[in-house]
């Protein structure tokens, strides 16, 4: 299947999902589904760098929160700006930060990049905490309009629709990369970077492209967050949960293809929501961490890999 039919198929699935949601018309379902779709985007974004090139980004919260806080800034400057534009701006800001961090650290061994991204998350949080314009440590309030623009109904439906659209774009991009020269270059870096460099693969440029795409999608996924939570403070915007989930979901689903993050996000996200409602919200965050460790130790190819092995 080419990229265009694939994108159309995804649009149909997304439209069907949205139609079912509209027909059910339960706000809770939209709130819960938004989180799962957001994790599909985050997991896919992480996988473009982590799964395809093998470079582990731990600074997901930095990119995600940069997107969220760029929306806060835009909201304070131009409150009437449409949300899709805020998402594009958030993506650009996060992508540029990814470019800068990558340029400084991607020439070294992969671990140094990973460590730098871990530290990046702390430093961006420090900057935001010290920046009074966006509320500093006190946090910022964003007034969510009551009614959704264009489509009518509850505003959460609009947020969900935007996130679905972003998800379609992210998945189409990820799948297109897999079957392109770019994707083969990424795989060459993952399997043996020295050999790739020696055979003329422009490794640094490819790694930078992956970092910018990955960071950009994370920023775009974070941009609607202030409208989703309506109150954003650094400790919730930079919660480690986002990072753990975005890493755990692709690794649990399988990092080799676009399907892995989707499977992981739906299963883990659904399980977490179930546990949050039935047991407690403290245990639900533990689930992703435990599953992450269990899967990387026992099933490094993830669920998709397990099925593929059985079919052979």
């Amino acid at each position: 299947m080419g990229s265009v039919p694939f994108a159309l198929a995804l649009v149909c699935v997304a439209a069907a999902l949205f139609a079912v949601g509209r027909w059910l018309n339960i706000s809770y379902a939209f709130f819960a589904a938004y989180v799962v779709v957001q994790y599909i985007v985050l997991g896919t974004a992480w996988n473009i760098l982590g799964g395809y090139t093998g470079y582990v980004n731990f600074g997901i919260t930095a990119f995600f929160a940069l997107g969220a806080y760029s929306s806060v800034v835009l909201y304070k400057l131009v409150p009437s700006l449409p949300l899709p534009i805020m998402m594009v701006v958030g993506g650009i800001v996060a992508g540029l930060v990814g470019l800068g961090t990558g340029y400084l650290t991607l020439r070294l061994r992969g671990v140094f990049f990973s460590i730098a991204t871990l530290a990046l998350a702390v430093v961006v949080q420090t900057l935001i905490t010290n920046w009074d314009f966006v509320g500093g440590a006190r946090g910022a309030y964003v007034l969510r309009p009551r009614v959704a623009p264009l489509i009518g109904g509850d505003y959460i439906q609009y947020l969900f629709l935007l996130m679905l659209g972003l998800c379609v774009i992210a998945l189409t991009t990820a799948r297109a990369i897999e079957h392109s020269a770019l994707g083969y270059g990424f795989a060459a870096i993952r399997d043996d970077e020295g050999a790739a460099e020696a055979s003329g693969v422009p490794t640094l440029r490819l790694k930078l492209i992956a970092t910018v795409l990955s960071g950009g999608f994370m920023g775009m996924a974070g941009a609607p967050l202030p409208y989703y939570v309506t109150y954003l403070d650094p400790s919730s915007g930079f919660s480690l949960n986002y990072a753990v989930n975005a890493i755990a979901m692709p690794l649990i689903g399988g990092t080799s293809s676009w399907l892995g993050p989707v499977v992981g996000a739906v299963l883990v996200g659904g399980l977490q929501e179930y546990i949050r409602v039935t047991i407690s919200s403290a245990v639900n965050v533990l689930v992703a961490g435990v599953l992450l460790v269990v899967f990387v130790v026992l099933a490094p190819e993830g669920i998709v890999g397990l099925f593929r092995r059985r079919r052979r």
């Binding site: 093998g54 582990v56 731990f58 690794l251 533990l286 961490g289 435990v290 992450l292 990387v296 130790v297």
Partner: peptide
Amino acid sequence: IAFERRQDQSLGGLSFFFGLLFITEVG
């Protein structure tokens, strides 16, 4: 057993320790 023997230190090993960090903190 899980990573060094399989030569998968970077992606798997890093994620393993990240998971341990998170489990310790939440625990």
